[in-house]
Amino acid sequence: MQAREYTEIFRYAREYFSSFEKSCDEFHILIDPALESASAKVRLGKNGYRIDRMKVAYAYENGSEVSYTGIDEWMKHAACAGSCTNTLYVPIHFSDKPVGLYVFKNPDFLYTNSKLSDMLSPISMAMQQLFLNRMLTNTLNELKHLYNRDQLTGVYNRIAFKELLISKYNEAAYDGLEGAVFFIDADNFKETNDTLGHDKGDKVLKCIASALVNSLSCEGYVCRYGGDEFVVFMPSVSNDDAEGYRDAVCSSLAADNISVSIGLALTGADTSLTLKECVAIADEDMYRVKALHKASSNG
Rank of each mutant, 00 (worst) to 15 (best):
K55S: 06
A78T: 06
A126E: 03
E191D: 06
R14I: 10
A209G: 06
L205I: 03
Y58Q: 12
R4H: 15
Q129K: 03
D202E: 09
F189L: 07
G299N: 06
P91Q: 13
S37R: 15
S124V: 05
Y225A: 08
Y49G: 00
D202S: 03
T274D: 07
V181L: 10
I159H: 10
H28V: 05
E284C: 13
C84W: 03
L253P: 12
K203N: 11
I159R: 14
T87A: 12
E243Q: 15
S37Q: 15
V42R: 10
M234Y: 11
G82R: 13
D150V: 10
K162A: 02
Y60F: 14
A265N: 01
F189M: 08
L177H: 15
R224V: 06
D240C: 09
A209C: 14
L212Q: 01
E15R: 15
L275G: 05
K144W: 01
F230S: 14
Y225I: 07
S238V: 08
I9A: 06
S64T: 05
P235L: 01
P122I: 10
T139R: 13
D72L: 10
N86R: 15
D247V: 15
L35A: 13
K168P: 02
I123R: 09
A269Y: 11
Y147G: 09
D194P: 00
K200A: 12
R288N: 13
N239H: 02
E142N: 03
S272W: 07
I31M: 13
M1C: 02
S272N: 07
F17A: 06
K97P: 14
S64W: 04
V181Y: 12
G227M: 14
E219M: 04
K276F: 11
H198W: 12
I9D: 01
N106A: 07
H77S: 08
G70I: 07
M234K: 12
W74R: 05
K200I: 09
Y111Q: 03
V56P: 11
N188R: 08
L292P: 06
K144T: 07
K168G: 04
T153L: 05
L44E: 13
A280T: 15
P91R: 10
E219Q: 03
S252Y: 12
L292K: 02
G299L: 08
E284V: 07
G226K: 10
S251E: 13
F233H: 12
W74V: 02
V279W: 03
A57G: 08
D185A: 06
H28F: 15
D202Q: 09
S124P: 00
D247C: 12
T267I: 07
Y245Q: 02
N62C: 06
F131L: 05
Y221R: 09
G154R: 09
A255W: 11
M119W: 11
T139M: 11
I9Q: 04
F20I: 01
N188L: 05
L196R: 00
P122F: 09
S261T: 00
C223G: 14
C207L: 12
C207G: 09
D285F: 04
Y12A: 10
C84E: 02
I281F: 08
E61G: 03
M1D: 08
G299E: 08
G220T: 01
F182R: 00
Q151I: 07
L253T: 05
